[in-house]
Design a protein around this nucleic acid. Structure first.
Lengths: 216, 216
DNA sequence: TAGATTGTTAATCGATTAACAATC
DNA sequence: TAGATTGTTAATCGATTAACAATC
């Protein structure tokens, strides 16, 4: 029954994992799959899988399971992959460059509409079809071209200011690759962080000698 | 009381956040802080903070709070930042390059000992003091130089093989930047994933029109 | 129809929050 | 000493798992 409850973050974070697995199954030309088999392959319980999907609707068929193509389409839709969200890249250093070249934004349903950098040598460059503009033009450009997502791949020391700026220009989300926690609590902008060092330190913890946990 | 229970992933993932905040407080020359004030600044409850730290020992003082420097040192130790873990970078494309140049591995307590790439033009390069070797030398090199962490910034199509190789050579952790889920379930290697597209899709969900959640 | 598998409700498990005695 | 704040135990909340009637 379609309850309209708030969906937990844990569920949302599993959706892209389902998407990846479903794409894999499609590549293997698997037509249908049960929650049982999907759970086995993904290391989740069948219960959890059925609970997760049931947050969004009834995508399966009793006695049959889920049609892989249909389910994939539903997950993609829920994640907003059909909305052609506009993305700008701010900061075209190695990382910004890497994202433009290697992330398949368009395959995921996004369009990179522009990139910005403050280095005069980079302005006018075209990277995988994306034009690099001067950072000076950022505000003007955003006002003329409503943008959904700003990718923040700038140096730490300017991250806070740039975030504030793009928030004021009406972007709805910031994909933050800097290692600082942006404070945009007084705005409606959603911030998604990729904190590399947090991830590395967690890895470090997990491979560490567990005896170091306790001083005793 | 020092129970030796398994510490939950949620707690571990908060440790690097504490570290960042504590470094910030140190920069502001704050000497002591209560769980109350720390919670206010980080958006956590004081209870959670005290619970988190009490997993590892007794780091505070009743009636006083926590000494910022001491607490920072404890968190750093728990995360393994005093262990000088050895890191190799495999794949020196834009992303590998970006990590070598911009992540301050040594500040976090890691040493990058080598980088590897299959492109002959890159071999012999020095990036921020790190030498790029031929991928052909990887196995030989790892056998001669025990290595804790392999950073996987290679193209997707070789990721699985490279992961298997480094696992066999005895690395303890893989920092996986490819968009595939490595299957190393039959090894002791811990895999930490940075799945860019999962993160972007979650962002997309959260800025999306919530009415799209339900078909009805 | 019989078997399989969903969607959903109920039970369990774990994580967060609250409360408070211990103590600096 | 009195006030503040911890570390820890108990209570609550939420997420996962199990069970099962509905149904394809």
């Amino acid at each position: 029954m379609l309850k309209r409850e708030r969906i937990s973050n844990n569920v949302i974070r599993r959706l892209p994992m389902y998407l990846r697995k479903l794409d894999e199954l499609i590549a293997q030309e698997v037509d249908r799959i049960s929650s049982n088999e999907l759970g086995r392959q993904m290391g989740l319980t069948p219960s959890q899988i059925r609970q997760d999907f049931s947050c969004f609707g009834e995508f399966g068929q009793q006695g049959y399971g889920y049609r892989v193509l249909d389910l994939r389409e539903q997950v993609a839709r829920i994640l907003g992959m059909n909305e052609h969200l506009n993305v700008v890249i701010i900061g075209v250093g190695n990382l910004g460059h890497a994202l433009i070249e290697n992330m398949h934004f368009s395959q995921l349903g996004f369009q990179i509409t522009a990139a910005f950098d403050s280095n005069p040598e980079k302005i006018g460059d075209h990277i995988s079809g994306v034009t690099v503009f001067s950072s000076d033009k950022l505000v003007e450009w955003l006002k003329a071209n409503p943008t959904d997502i700003a990718v923040l791949t700038v140096p730490q020391n300017v991250a806070g200011d740039v975030a504030k700026t793009v928030a004021e220009c009406g972007v709805r989300g910031i994909w933050n690759f800097t290692n600082i926690d942006l404070d945009l609590s007084n705005t409606n902008v959603f911030v998604e962080n990729i904190h590399f060092s947090d991830s590395l330190l967690a890895l470090s913890y997990y491979i560490g000698d567990k005896s170091r946990e306790r001083t005793e």
